[in-house]
Design a protein around this nucleic acid. Structure first.
Lengths: 222, 222
DNA sequence: GTCTATATGCGGATAGAC
DNA sequence: GTCTATCCGCATATAGAC
């Protein structure tokens, strides 16, 4: 069956891109693991680049739709006051974490891939991300700014960057847990709670004082 | 001169690995940009893998030494009480940011590379990181735990992961700034202050309540 | 839709002259 | 130490039979 082949390729590609990165994964690796012929990739997707696009789009779309649904709910519930930081953080972070509970084969690997792709230099990948995240940025940045009126525009943007960084890195487990000496959580939900707790507090922090006093030890290293 | 060739290769490799990733950068690209012969890489470094190791080690060593110096200072200044979160965060984050001010050609690119390499799946790269960060983890984790006694061992480890994620992502600018709609800072110091402010507040957050109530909209997406 | 066979180019690494 | 020339394997992509 055609769709079976196509889905098997997508699933295996997702897993291998997540494990080894895009450039280091060959179509031969993918088709071998999927048990399909090498020519099938080109028949169904046209090229390796297009395959990556298909892998990404299959998952990012639903996650981002869910984010916007939760954002709408949070804003509706809060009325004039605007959504709380906690609600905004959950709207942004919980959909990608939750998705790993949906299926059996793919989504858990996509969590890793999503984390990795944020750092991937591949032009196609970044273009896809940019396109898919356009609306997310457009909706979330003003919502965060409304909830964080004490921050300058720049600092609000940077804090969002910190949040995304913490999220992306966390989603790249297990590569990351060994670095920090932490235990891998049995429960994705537990890790999500810890992350939300962290970023909410970080977002609520007072604006940074512009003290650029240099540390006494700066430059003391060879 | 021999050392000139070697350094030029290191500088160019650092820049290209940072821009395109390890797997996507060929030795031909590197030697072309450096204006040296293709065979020079193998003569001076032995292999592409060893070149990567050399690129990483040249920068990580000094940064991590500086981190340990600042950690020692912070602990000495605080005495029995243990270092403050603020001092620990600065000891961890400021050396890699500061290094971008040291030279002209290389270090600014290394900031990007360091961010990227955290996400790179390449086995050699991760082994090098693990080796170089062994002592950092060994010293910083207990210090953070002492300063954060209200957290479980797991949660303290995870928060460190969040901190490293926010740092790594931030250091990968400019790739990242376009995603979040933020302005690129003119001053690295300004961005560092914002990051410290954010992570200190996040680290100090109360322990996460174990409420795993599922959101009403979970699973509502196609 | 699926396969085999193959075109074509780029990759890392090396041999050996200078 | 630096160069040219080359080995050899793997990469993506395609042509064309079934």
């Amino acid at each position: 069956m055609a769709s079976d082949t196509k889905d098997r390729i997508l699933d295996v590609a997702e897993a291998l891109f997540a494990d080894h990165g895009f450039a280091a994964t060959s179509l031969r690796d993918i088709t071998h693991d999927a048990g399909v012929n090498i020519a099938a990739v080109n028949y169904h997707f046209g090229s390796k680049d297009s395959l990556l696009a298909a892998v990404l789009e299959r998952r990012i779309g639903p996650v981002n739709r869910q984010r916007l649904i939760m954002l709408d709910e949070a804003e509706a519930a809060a009325g004039e006051a605007g959504a709380t930081i906690d609600a905004l953080a959950r709207a942004l972070l919980s959909p990608p974490f939750r998705q790993c509970l949906v299926g059996e084969r793919g989504p858990v690997k996509f969590q890793q891939l999503a984390g990795r792709i944020h750092a991937e230099p591949h032009a196609h990948a970044r273009a896809i991300l940019l396109a898919q995240f356009g609306e997310i940025t457009r909706r979330f940045v003003p919502a965060f700014r409304k909830a964080l009126p004490h921050l300058s525009e720049d600092e609000a943007g940077w804090r969002l960057l910190f949040v995304v960084g913490a999220m992306a890195h966390t989603m790249m487990s297990p590569h990351m847990f060994e670095l920090c000496g932490g235990r891998q959580p049995d429960d994705s939900e537990e890790l999500l709670e810890a992350l939300v707790q962290f970023v909410v507090a970080g977002l609520k922090a007072p604006a940074a004082a512009r003290t650029s006093r240099t540390s006494p030890t700066a430059g003391a290293v060879a």
